[in-house]
């Protein structure tokens, strides 16, 4: 007789999808909750570095685009919190863990956006790296997560293009504007490479996640894919990737590149990046400032309920 756990393994082995009420090992559930929550937190914290530039966007067109992008990030956060909740956790609980610093978000959002060109660099590099990470997640073994990622990926490609367009415009502008674009690439290149996580040899959760079909490619594989995709795009912009070790290898068809400083990644993950405290404090404040809205809506709903009863 097949147990419910056998049926879990059989589904995974057949590359099928696990759905919310199916039996699953506790480790699978916990890994997914951790990963989806971290992903959701990244989406909503990611609104901050860009939101910072909405009021200073250089034209009405750019402002409307940036607002739409930041709204998308909020939406992506909501898709992902909803996916996490199908595993039996509550969104409010996940937000409490974020606010208490007990769950993480992507280290990339702990870097500041100093100039308008940074908005271009985030769209092009950060969203570009996110797409490389996220496309394989559309085939993740957990159905609700995979479905949320399909929606996210569809929307993300506009984000990357608008970023590239910003930089392309700056690169074809005055020498000062081009220098601003180069400066943004210089600062965002290394943190973007860190977005793929530690090198495979040091990656703690990877092996089990691969076996469970949550993760489909290793960190180093995805990092290589990102470099191969991005370097020719930098050439088109006429910008220099800040890596003296960058060489195209004719034999393999891939770029050889310098690894980022992972010690910096660990420091930022630990909370010692340039903006960690600011990001979290802002998030907590936004949540607390919104409390009266949630309370008023609940009170109104209760009053209406009484009127019906």
């Amino acid at each position: 007789m097949l147990t419910r756990m056998d049926s879990f393994q059989a589904t995974i082995d057949a590359d099928g999808r696990i759905e919310p009420r199916d039996a699953m090992p506790e480790g699978y559930r916990k890994t997914l909750i951790r990963q989806i929550a971290q992903h959701a937190h990244s989406e909503i914290i990611g609104m901050q570095p860009e939101g910072n530039w909405i009021s200073r966007a250089p034209s009405l067109r750019r402002k409307a685009i940036l607002m739409a992008k930041v709204q998308d990030e909020a939406g992506h956060g909501l898709y992902l919190y909803a996916a996490a909740e199908t595993l039996g956790v509550d969104r409010a609980e996940l937000l409490d863990l974020l606010h208490a610093g007990r769950q993480k978000y992507s280290s990339i959002f702990n870097y500041p956006t100093l100039t308008w060109a940074d908005i271009g660099a985030i769209g092009w590099l950060v969203d570009g790296a996110a797409i490389v990470n996220q496309v394989p997640l559309c085939r993740c073994s957990y159905g609700p997560y995979a479905r949320a990622m399909v929606r996210v990926c569809k929307e993300e490609s506009f984000h990357q293009r608008q970023g590239f367009e910003i930089l392309h415009t700056l690169c074809n502008g005055t020498p000062g504007q081009k220098a601003m674009a180069q400066d943004a690439l210089d600062r965002w290149w290394w943190p973007s490479l860190m977005m793929f996580g530690p090198p495979d040899a040091a990656s703690t959760h990877s092996e089990q996640s691969m076996a469970w079909g949550i993760k489909r490619h290793s960190n180093d594989e995805l990092r290589q894919r990102f470099v191969d995709m991005t370097v020719p795009q930098a050439d088109i912009l006429g910008l220099r990737v800040p890596d003296d070790g960058l060489v195209y290898d004719d034999a393999t068809g891939h770029y050889t590149f310098t690894e980022p400083d992972y010690a910096e990644l660990y420091e930022v993950v630990k909370g010692n990046g340039p903006c960690n405290e600011k990001r979290l404090a802002h998030r907590v404040k936004a949540h607390e400032d919104g409390a009266w809205v949630r309370e008023a809506a609940a009170a109104y709903a209760a009053k209406r309920q009484e009127a019906v009863a």
Partner: peptide
């Protein structure tokens, strides 16, 4: 398509 939290049906 998914789910969400809201205080009442209109919201």
């Amino acid at each position: 398509v998914g789910s969400l939290h809201a205080p009442d049906a209109t919201m």
